[in-house]
C-alpha cells in the first residue's frame, strides 16, 4: 500500500475521544468499590475498629498501603504515555517502602526478642496472604485492561505498577478486617502479598501492555 493511501484511510477513521486517564478512573473506581463490598460481605469488619484506629500503628497499616496504591496509580498513568518517565513515580514509592520497613524496625525495637517469632507469625498469616492476593485480582485486572489503551514505554514496569496498585489497595481494604496489629506481622505479610501482586502484574504487563 502506498503511504499516501494509508494516510487517506486513517484520516477517515473516527477518533476515540476517551483519554487513558478517564478510562483508568472508570475501571479502577468500580473495581475498588466492588472489592471493598466483597470484603465487607465475605470477610466482615474487625471488632472494635473505631477504637483500634486511634492507634497510629493500626492507622499506618491502612494509610500506607492506600498511599502506595494512589502513587502506583499515578505512576501507571504517567507511564501510559509513550514519553512518560518512570523516574517521577518511583522515588515516592521508594520512600513509602522505606517508611514501611521503618515500621518493622520500630516494632523490633519495642518487642522483646523472645516474642519476635510469635509476633511475626501471628494467628492468621496464611489467611492474610491469600485474602490480599484474592482481593487484589479484580482491581489489578481492571487496571491492566484500562492501561492496554495506553502506550507504555516500559510495559513490564507499567504492569508492576498496576499489580502494586491492586495489591496495596487490597491490603488497605483487608486491613479493615484484619485483627493483627503488630507491624512485624503486617509489614511482613501485607508486604509479601503486595510484592507477589506486583510481580504478577509485571509478568502480565510485559505481555498485555506491549504495543
Amino acid at each position: 500500500m502506498r503511504t499516501e493511501d494509508l494516510i487517506e484511510r486513517l484520516a477517515r477513521e473516527e477518533e476515540s475521544a476517551v483519554s487513558v486517564r478517564s478510562g483508568v478512573v472508570a475501571a479502577w473506581t468500580p473495581a475498588f468499590l466492588a472489592t471493598l463490598v466483597i470484603m465487607l460481605v465475605g470477610w466482615g469488619l474487625r471488632s472494635g475498629l473505631g477504637l483500634a484506629l486511634a492507634d497510629p500503628l493500626v492507622l499506618a497499616k491502612i494509610a500506607l498501603p492506600m498511599l502506595a496504591a494512589a502513587m502506583a496509580l499515578a505512576g501507571g498513568l504517567e507511564l501510559s504515555r509513550p514519553e512518560g518517565h518512570a523516574t517521577r513515580a518511583l522515588p515516592g514509592l521508594g520512600a513509602l517502602g522505606v517508611a514501611w520497613l521503618g515500621l518493622l524496625t520500630l516494632d523490633l525495637a519495642i518487642t522483646p526478642p523472645e516474642t519476635w517469632d510469635e509476633a511475626l507469625r501471628g494467628q492468621t498469616r496464611l489467611a492474610c496472604l491469600l485474602s490480599i492476593l484474592a482481593l487484589a485480582v479484580l482491581p489489578t485486572a481492571a487496571l491492566l485492561a484500562a492501561l492496554r489503551r495506553g502506550a507504555s514505554p516500559r510495559p513490564a514496569l507499567s504492569g508492576a505498577l498496576a499489580g502494586l496498585a491492586g495489591g496495596a489497595g487490597a491490603a488497605a481494604i483487608y486491613a479493615f478486617h484484619c485483627p493483627e496489629d503488630a507491624p512485624l506481622f503486617y509489614v511482613t505479610w501485607y508486604g509479601t502479598g503486595i510484592v507477589i501482586a506486583s510481580a504478577a502484574g509485571a509478568v502480565l504487563g510485559s505481555r498485555w501492555l506491549r504495543w
Binding site: M1, T3, L6, I7, L10, E13, E15, S16, A17, V18, S19, V20, S80, R81, P82, R149, G150, A151, W211
Partner: peptide
C-alpha cells in the same frame, strides 16, 4: 516505507494518548 507505515499506524492507534 513499510516501517514508516508501521510508525504511522502506531501514531494513529495511540493518538488518544497525546494530552
Amino acid at each position: 516505507e513499510d516501517i514508516v507505515q508501521e510508525v504511522l499506524l502506531a501514531i494513529h492507534a495511540k493518538r488518544h494518548t497525546w494530552d
